[in-house]
Write a protein that binds this DNA or RNA. Structure first.
Lengths: 188, 188
DNA sequence: AGATGAAGCGGAACGTTGCTCCGGATACGG
DNA sequence: CCGTATCCGGAGCAACGTTCCGCTTCATCT
């Protein structure tokens, strides 16, 4: 599965890191949907080089945000430890998740469309943040704060969906919507 | 805004209805994101003819679903009359709204992306179903079943977002998610 | 050091989008 | 039945993700 290989040759390593840096910069200004050519140009590199390092567009996105996504997953533990109750931890962790999704324009959208092409993005979330979410959801269920039949997947998906296209629309506050959604999960 | 004109010439009228029928058929099988060319081919017509009748892709989508969207908006009244409480009406109406969005593959997705091109879809929802939703939300707020600061827009948007990509994913049930979301709106 | 071949590079090119344009066909009013 | 305003068809454009391949560059072996 995860082909974790740092390039051996110096030029390849240089290209790869230039690409990652350029992509990060471009994604900040133009959103995650920025054209591959824009990233290539910014890195001073041909498109072929992009596809040599990242076989598909979502692979590039994954590479750029892998750290932040994994640290978001890791935050689940600390939220569980810091909060007074598991449900409180869920609220806190959801906050950092929403931050991640809303800050990176279009990430939430890329997530919730299963065009098959974005398999890498999907599996990264499934392998990393789904277990994190599951930990908190299970704890909340065990504490009787949330129904037992609530799945981590639907919580993740619900939060993710609520963040789609949330930037730039002053009439819609994803954080608020997620708060409502999570409030609906709580048992009375 | 709304250019409501039936074509005068016989061939034009024929093309228009062939187009609408073809689009409906294609959207059912391939989803709302089906290529314009596919619709044109199915209607036995050139792409130019499509764009003569529907200046932009979302305009075609709007034309195909206008009836169902408006009848969904109209359902708000009957839900308010039929249900025991305004909140019950909100639940009922949300059910028909979710049905509409989930049945037409990709409609929810087309809705929540404001690429500027899909202005027609947006304005149709804003002009028709937002008021419908507002009626129910206001009634629920007046009955004290929902906070007064909850806006119809965020309810609409929340439900719409929760339906994005909900078809074909057996692990995610949009109806359930929406139920949670609406439960979170209710005051204790 | 110099040769060698595998790895990497760049960008032209392909297939697919939404959409435009205009020469030619067509139907309606006289 | 004929003139013309209207409409049709599909070639063509720009942008996208992705592929391909000739040329360059680097690590390595003698």
């Amino acid at each position: 599965m995860g082909t974790r290989e740092e390039p051996v040759r110096a030029d390849a390593r240089r290209s790869r890191s230039a690409l990652l840096e350029a992509a990060a910069a471009v994604f900040v200004t133009d959103g995650v949907d920025a054209p591959v050519r824009a990233v290539a140009a910014r890195a001073g590199v041909g498109v072929g080089t992009v596809y040599r390092h990242f076989p598909t567009r979502p692979d590039l996105v994954v590479a750029v945000y892998r750290h932040q996504i994994e640290s978001c997953a890791a935050a689940a533990r600390t939220c569980l430890d810091a909060a007074a109750t598991p449900y409180g931890a869920l609220l806190d962790w959801a906050g950092t998740f929403v931050d991640l999704l809303v800050t990176k324009h279009g990430l939430a959208g890329a997530l919730s469309q299963d065009s098959g092409r974005s398999a890498a993005l999907h599996s990264l979330f499934l392998e990393r943040v789904l277990p994190a979410c599951a930990t908190i959801v299970a704890a909340a269920a065990d504490a009787g704060q949330v129904p037992h039949d609530v799945t981590a997947y639907e919580v993740l998906r619900g939060i993710g969906n609520l963040c789609v296209g949330a930037d730039g629309d002053p009439r819609y506050d994803a954080r608020r919507a997620v708060r409502f959604f999570l409030a609906g999960l709580r048992v009375a």
